[in-house]
Nucleic acid binder design. Structure first.
Lengths: 193, 193
DNA sequence: TGATATAATAACTTATCACTCAATGAGTTT
DNA sequence: AAACTCATTGAGTGATAAGTTATTATATCA
């Protein structure tokens, strides 16, 4: 019964995916496929045995990325509804994927439509958790009278701004790790009534 | 005395610059030079008579962009130091250049280093005006106890977030025009003590 | 063990760009 | 008006990258 071959094929596929994540995270999505092949220690043609186009490779990457982010958020949101805790969790999840996430927001324009939609879906999940955590404190009048979506966009805008300008704020370092507490303190101070 | 030729040359140069701004704003910086030539109704080779490389064309564009933004901010900041007015002015200036500005923040990664620095310099000018307008109200204790640069980054983060996701918030429309008052109201509500 | 299926390879093809350069023709000078 | 200057042209060049395919090597099966 044919086993070794399937294993071998799955193995190269994994190698290509891992290489793509690494190379894309480090050098951006415009790196040529040959670079991915080198990193994966696989021939150039092999990539197209596993993925008909570079776009399909990217979408595969995005799908598993989205799944893993969602899982992490899901399990984390089962704890209390405290805002500061939620912001902390959110940033922790992002730190876990910082390189790739940063590339996604930096190069979103050049992503295929399908990839963009997947990314929007991720944000929308985050927004739901965010709303759940804020709900009680909003109705208790502890939060400034600002529309919920504006609060969310302010938070995401701030975090993305730091990610986008990481080289400026924390050269050769994780911006999120460095500024995590500053970002959370700033945002919670601002939204409180 | 040779006049017609110099005029002619200056004219083509202007045409190339205007075409580049238009085409870049509408289609992004990765648009091929032939498209710019077509838009300018000039031969492809002509571009390289006036600019040795595409990069030099981009830098020329950025320099005049920076100059014009600075001029507008300068003249506007001579009015009162009210924050809301300043935010209004800031957004008005951005609306004036929305297409190009949006491209700059969307495709910043692919810009040459020199262009990025020019863009950073623009933000730094804005930050100075921002600080001047806030100074009085901060010292009067009217503003939340949050470091100044965090306030500024929150504002810019919010505005950029809306620009970056313009297609989502205001398809085929100016996001800034549509959300100007919402953004200003949100931000001023948040920062007030 | 020999026939067959298939994962992997690497050289090849095709397309797209930025940039070059010899030719052209209108403008300028004497 | 003849000589020459110079902005403009567009076909050509070379580099880069995605995707193809004939070939090779190895596993599976009868």
């Amino acid at each position: 019964m044919a086993e070794k071959r399937k294993l071998q094929k799955a193995e190269t596929r994994k190698r290509i995916i891992a290489a793509a994540i690494k190379v894309y995270s480090e050098q951006g999505f415009s790196v040529p496929t040959v670079t991915i092949a080198e990193e994966a220690k696989v021939s150039h043609g092999s990539i197209f045995v596993h993925f008909p186009t570079v776009e399909s490779l990217l979408i595969c990457l995005l799908d598993s990325f989205s799944q893993s982010i969602n899982n992490e958020l899901q399990s984390l949101s089962e704890s209390s509804g405290d805002i500061e805790k939620l912001l902390n969790m959110h940033i922790n999840v992002l730190i876990q994927h910082e390189g790739f996430y940063k590339r996604l927001i930096k190069e979103a324009v050049y992503l295929p439509e399908e990839a963009k939609n997947t990314f929007i879906a991720i944000q929308s999940i985050v927004s739901i958790h965010f709303l759940q955590a804020l709900e009680y404190e909003i109705s208790a009048g502890k939060i400034k009278a600002v529309p919920f979506h504006m609060l969310f966009n302010t938070w995401l805008g701030l975090v993305h701004y730091y990610l986008l300008n990481g080289e400026l704020f924390a050269p050769q370092d994780s911006v999120l790790t460095r500024y995590k507490s500053a970002l959370i303190e700033c945002f919670t101070a601002l939204i409180k009534q």
